[in-house]
């Protein structure tokens, strides 16, 4: 799966690595260590967590704190999950001003979440979306229940399926007509 925008060309200095595989194998609970690392993250830093399984409960816990995630699996017992701050407009990696531009794009991957968490995460991100920016949602299916909420809240949206198992929804704030 393609790496989301906030993680492309991310310098090593902005990555905080935390490997909890041995801890879990030894039967110890790594939750406090993970949360300590999350609290210590700088505003532009990303936590790269390595675990022997996909840490699904963490997605929800950190999601509530505004973190999105992107997951890689090297082996069946070697997972790397990148936690990054969600819904912060991140410009495309092209030269330009640091402030969000009209064409800024926010990527939000909600695959692997149980309903209705995808809807909550998307609506949270959409509500924070500046005019002119685009929220790119990556989903496993067409979110039939989300569309009416977006329509009522004044968002335009278009959906396509660039590859099997990936549904992409582009969401923009509807511009006021003159």
């Amino acid at each position: 799966m393609e790496r989301p925008w906030p993680l492309t060309d991310l310098p090593e200095a902005r990555r905080v690595h935390l490997d909890v595989r041995e801890e879990i194998r030894a039967g110890r609970e790594p939750f406090i260590r993970i949360m300590t690392a999350v609290k210590a993250l700088g505003a532009d830093q990303v936590l790269v967590l390595r675990a022997p399984f996909e840490p699904l409960p963490l997605y929800e816990v950190l999601g509530r704190r505004g973190f999105a995630h992107w997951t890689e699996r090297a082996d069946p017992d070697d997972w790397s999950v990148w936690f990054f701050r969600d819904a912060e407009p991140v410009s495309a990696p092209t030269p330009g001003p640091a402030t969000p531009a009209r064409d800024a794009r926010v990527v939000l991957d909600v695959r692997g979440l149980e309903p209705p968490h995808p809807m909550v995460r998307v609506l949270q991100a959409a509500e924070r979306l500046p005019l002119g920016s685009v929220l790119e949602v990556r989903h496993e299916r067409r979110p039939i229940f989300l569309y009416p909420q977006l329509d009522e809240r004044g968002f335009d949206h278009e959906t396509d399926e660039p590859e099997p198992g990936l549904v992409r929804i582009l969401i923009r704030r509807r511009e006021a007509r003159a």
Binding site: P116, V120, V122, L123, Q124, E127, F145, Q149
Partner: peptide
């Protein structure tokens, strides 16, 4: 969906 959907995100 009926009760909390319209409030989600807000």
């Amino acid at each position: 969906s009926r009760v909390y959907g319209p409030r989600a995100g807000r």
